[in-house]
Design a protein around this nucleic acid. Structure first.
Lengths: 333, 333
DNA sequence: CTCAATAGAGTTATCGGTAACTCAAAAGTA
DNA sequence: TACTTTTGAGTTACCGATAACTCTATTGAG
């Protein structure tokens, strides 16, 4: 592959002159500049990123670590991050941890090894603490998006899961529901804890006793809801509404209900966080707390680049509100 | 950041010894190996990828360029590619060209600059030719997935768009349809051409005259189908079925039909390529030609790594069949 | 006309790692 | 015991680029 030396030889100048032409720095006569440029073009020169970043000690690459590339919430977030990064002159490297702390660990190793300039990360869970401390140890700036991790002080962009949760449950209560089941993600993830807090608080505010039989913990990724639905339906007083903590859980729940010929919302109201991809859904019918996924990415990326370029000020938190969108999956009892 | 020199100093040995411990090469006494290993761990040493790839002339990184990160077909493909890459010891770098040749061009520049070991690419269109030739010029192995590009000889994994197309149209004809509209992607994309060929051929086989008023070309990405639906509905003999070339087009079409209170399939049958994300759709109702997206990625990645590591044999083509899945969006006339 | 300032380059060292070669001491062999 | 082989390292050069410094013509001022 053609290097700066090849160009220099051909142009009968030093590599430094070529480097100056490439970077538009230093003093170069217009004549030389044009000659070198022509030769670079002719020889199809492409600078070697590794060599450059080795000496510059910066890569202009930012790593984006999300937990599920098939979840539209995250792909939308990714798009926001990508657009912002591009605008500010950085390249993005996506990775996908699959909600798996071990896989996340491997990616962090790569990220460290590549000396990326910063990391925008939706951590797999509280156990991500260790990875994040490693980033801190190496002074690699990072911003948490969507989820926080206890023990880590850093910039972050979070959704207001608790408020969103309260809005959803309040909505159900307004519709007359009092037997509201809650199927949550893993308590090892901050959003799940916040959503539970919102659920509990709203019940309390409305003097509805908490029924442990109505509460479940599962994963945010694909899973089978049948066992849970079984239990709920076999209760003496089955719930009239289900609050599912995210879109994946909702899908599993809906599938399970459908397979039993139960209709939504007639037989069961459903509310949840995050839309199924708005671009995809032919017929949006879920009542949701919609989070501004694109902004999560966009704002997170801006904060990250601020941090990379800027002075080391206090960690900032941005909390983005979610919006209650009432559709047909919830109805009066 | 701690380098191999810091380790060497602390271990009182040469950098070469450290390098040998890292790579498990050369002759090292067990005692020294353990001592160096302990120090590396203690000092949290992480090898510098740039330095290493500079001297090794390989990065163990493969670039995956897809055209739309929000399209489940591509995210599923990406997952297949990722799994295969990981299994074979490579890291993946996703990028997203957004069906935009210019954006693709920028990513190719980055890819060249980073000297990745190979590129798995779903080209934005025929105009990608120029980028791909650049890859060829630099001897960077690449594999085309999903789409081919005239003028480029290379490994590739394609769907059998023509056969899939024929199956869909044949299915409609079997149901009694003869007025079948076809809303295609851009003719600058190979799959669109193949799908059109299948459409035309099947009509001909069944002695159905081609009606130019039934044929449209648009983009594979989000767009507004209203003008097209307007035209179709205002025809003297409006179609009874629509064949939409991909999932995005289908969505736009469905939205447009719904906004006119037209029911599917009662008022209009619809068939198309590619599922909306099977994991997402609450209630799959589209009749589709399903392509094995995961295998596109998996097989493509395997071919690519073969090519990177192996001998330079003839370019190989893998054609993956699509499967007709009949659901409720198509019915007898 | 002389000397300082500036334009337009070139030299050298370095980033962090590894290949290829070298070399002394220990171990094996005749 | 003397010589060869093996073990366990160290030295040096280089991958491709850039920072910092140096150097030589020009140019301009007085």
């Amino acid at each position: 592959m053609v290097s700066i030396y090849d160009i220099a030889k051909r142009a009968q100048c030093s590599t430094m002159t070529v480097s100056r032409v490439i970077n538009n720095t230093g003093r170069i006569s217009e004549k030389t500049r044009q000659r070198v440029k022509a030769i670079m073009k002719e020889m199809n020169y492409v600078p070697n990123h590794a060599a450059r970043s080795l000496v510059l000690q910066q890569t202009k690459i930012i790593s984006l670590l999300i937990t599920d590339i098939t979840n539209p919430f995250y792909t939308t977030l990714a798009r926001g991050a990508e657009d912002a990064a591009q605008r500010l002159g950085y390249r993005l490297m996506f990775s996908n941890s699959d909600e798996d702390v071990k896989k996340e660990h491997e990616y962090i190793e790569t990220v460290l090894s590549m000396r990326v300039d910063g990391v925008l990360i939706a951590p797999a869970g509280d156990q991500s603490l260790e990875h994040l401390q490693k980033l801190q140890l190496y002074n690699i700036p990072f911003v948490l998006v969507d989820r926080e991790v206890p023990g880590i002080e850093s910039d972050r962009v979070l959704g207001d899961s608790k408020e969103g949760s309260k809005a959803l449950v309040e909505h159900l209560i307004q519709l007359g529901h009092r037997r509201i089941a809650f199927i949550n993600g893993s308590p090892g993830i901050s959003t799940a804890r916040m959503r539970e807090a919102g659920y509990l608080e709203t019940l309390k505010l409305n003097d509805i006793p908490v029924n442990p039989d109505y509460m479940f913990e599962t994963g945010y990724s694909q899973f089978d809801a049948d066992p849970i639905i079984d239990k709920l339906l076999s209760l003496e007083e089955p719930p009239t509404a289900i609050f599912a903590a995210n879109n994946f859980i909702t899908l599993a729940v809906i599938r399970s209900l459908r397979s039993r010929e139960l209709r939504i919302p007639d037989d069961m109201s459903i509310v949840c966080f995050d839309d199924l991809d708005p671009g995809y859904i032919v017929d949006p019918f879920l009542t949701i707390a919609a989070q501004p996924a694109y902004d999560f990415g966009r704002i997170g990326m801006q904060m990250l680049i601020d941090r990379i370029q800027g002075t080391a000020n206090e960690p900032r938190s941005v909390i983005l509100p979610s919006k209650l969108i009432v559709r047909r999956s919830s109805t009066e009892i």
